[in-house]
Each structure stands twice: as structure tokens, then as C-alpha cells.
Amino acid sequence: MDSSLHGAAARTGDHPVVEAGARLGYVASGVLHLILGWIAIGLAWGTSSGSADQTGALEQLSSSPLGSVLLWVVVAGFALLALWQVAEAVTAGETKETVKSAGKGVGYLVLTGVAARIATRTGGGGSENRTDSLTASVMQHPLGQVAVAAVGAGIIGIGVYHVVKGWSRKFLEDLREQPPRAVVVAGRVGYVAKGAALGVVGALFVFAAVTNDPEEAGGLDAALRSLLELPAGTVLLTAVGAGIAAYGLYSFGRARYARV
């Protein structure tokens, strides 16, 4: 890698503004997951009709007092966290760490864009409709079903990784010191719940590929709603929603203890 690029990335990642912004990004993630967990629990008990995904959570945030201001704070936090992750990807010494940081950077950039669209009222269409449309477009091509199934398998893999990371407390490696027990418990519960939700999302993509029905594919909202169709679905969705909220609480702790 070009030494000048590596040096520039290192200076960017170590800049006080970027480091503070990365911590702000974790706070923004915490707010997002708390709202998302609340929506999921509301769906379980029939008290909410909002979209149980990142877009729905951000839209609910925008409708709160000072919602516009809070949204722009979220935009700034996610943007700076994405920048820090990209800098980490450039300076990482191992390919695995480079790919992981780059993937997170892309994810936070997407969230930055979604939050900015909602803040400027330029977002349109539900996320589930966009997922169905994209899946249908992919399935029209040769090997499209295989590609959709591969995406689903990849999401399931990410979900399993989250579950293992939470159960084994591997997430503590992301922190610079041992946090309070409450943060550790929230992290374990949160990672496991988030992993379970991602596993359902991936399963929906695989099922859509097997049945050649793009409408079976869906994002987080569809995955959480599908839990209601299972025995004891209300209890399951309540537990997952509480777990997602726990991940939000862990994110607040991560903002304090993260290695940045």
C-alpha cells in the first residue's frame, strides 16, 4: 500500500474530531437501536404500526421534539464513524480486519444517507418495497436465484457471527478497558438478539431464492414481523425487541469505552 495513503489514513483516524465523531456515531447507533427495539415490542403487542427497521426508527426520531436537530446530529455521527472505519480499513495490517472495517464503513455510510434523506424529507418508498424490487431485479438474471441465496447465506453467517460474538463476550476486544458489568450484560444480550434477527433476514432471502418469489425476501421489518407467525410469537418478538434495545444500551457504553 502507498505509504502516503497509509499515513494520511492514520492521521485522519487519529484526528480528535474524527475520534470524537466516532464516539458520537456509537451514541447515534444506541439511539437508533433503542427506538427500533421499542417499535419491535410495540409490534408484538399491537401498539405500533411503524416500520421495524432503521428507516422506521429514524422516521420516528424525526417526529419527536427537536427531531430535525437530532437527525442531523445522527447524520454527523454516522458520517464521522464511517470515516473512522474507512481509515481503520486502510491502516489495518490484516486482510480480515481490512474487510471488516471496510464493510462497517459502508454500512455507516448507508445509514448516513438514509438519515440525511429523512432529515431533508427526500426519502421515498418503504424499505421493504425497495428490497422486493431489488430482489426481483436480481432474480431476472441468469443465476439470479443463486445470487439471492448467496446473499441470504451471507446474512445468516453475519447473524451467527453476532451470536457467537455476544455469547463468548468477544465484543470486549473492541473496548479499551473492562466496562461495568451492566455494559457487558447489555452487550451479550444485544449481540445475540441482533444476530438472531439477522439470521431470520437471511433465511427470508434463502426462502425467496428457493421458491423463486422475490416477495418472500425482506429486510429487518419483514423478519421481525415473521416472528409473530411462530408459536409464542408475541413472546419471541418481545424478547428480540428487548434484546435490540439492550444492544442500544451497549452502544452507549461502547461510545465511552471503544478503542478509537
Score class of each variant (00 low, 15 high):
S29K: 13
R188N: 09
V183N: 03
R259W: 02
L204A: 11
L71R: 08
S226M: 03
A136L: 02
P214K: 12
A119T: 03
V106N: 01
Q60K: 14
F207N: 10
G241A: 08
V148D: 13
V69D: 11
L109H: 01
A102C: 04
A92C: 06
D221A: 12
Y161C: 00
L43M: 08
F78L: 13
L143T: 01
L198T: 04
A196N: 00
V240S: 07
A246S: 15
H162M: 10
L227F: 10
S4D: 13
V160H: 12
L83F: 09
A20W: 08
G248W: 12
A182L: 13
P179Y: 07
E229A: 15
V27P: 03
R181D: 14
L224H: 09
G25W: 01
G50M: 10
W72L: 13
V31S: 12
L71I: 05
S29F: 11
S62D: 07
G125R: 06
Y191R: 07
A10S: 14
T211A: 15
G248F: 09
A76M: 11
A246I: 04
G219W: 08
S29P: 00
P179V: 05
I244W: 08
A239Y: 02
V99Q: 10
R11Y: 00
L34Y: 03
G202R: 07
S64I: 00
G30E: 06
Y250H: 14
L134V: 10
I118V: 11
A20T: 10
G219V: 02
T98M: 14
L81V: 00
V73N: 02
V69K: 10
V192M: 15
G241W: 05
A209S: 13
S51I: 00
L198N: 10
A258F: 13
V18C: 08
I39F: 08
V106R: 01
Q60I: 04
G248M: 07
R181M: 05
W72Y: 15
S62N: 12
L24A: 15
L198E: 12
A217M: 11
D14G: 05
G166S: 10
G25D: 03
G25S: 04
S168I: 00
T238H: 08
A119D: 09
L237G: 10
G218W: 12
T120A: 13
A115R: 08
G113E: 03
G195W: 07
A76C: 14
T135I: 15
V260P: 01
S49V: 01
L109G: 14
L111W: 11
G7P: 00
G30Q: 11
V184M: 04
A116I: 00
P179I: 04
A8N: 12
N212R: 14
A193E: 09
G202W: 09
I118C: 08
V235I: 14
Y108K: 03
L36M: 14
V99I: 15
S251I: 05
S137E: 14
S127Y: 02
Q54I: 10
Q178G: 00
T131S: 07
V75Y: 07
A119N: 06
G123K: 07
R121Y: 06
A136T: 00
G187L: 08
A147S: 14
G13Y: 06
G123D: 15
R130T: 02
L81A: 13
A255P: 11
Y191P: 01
S62G: 11
Y250K: 11
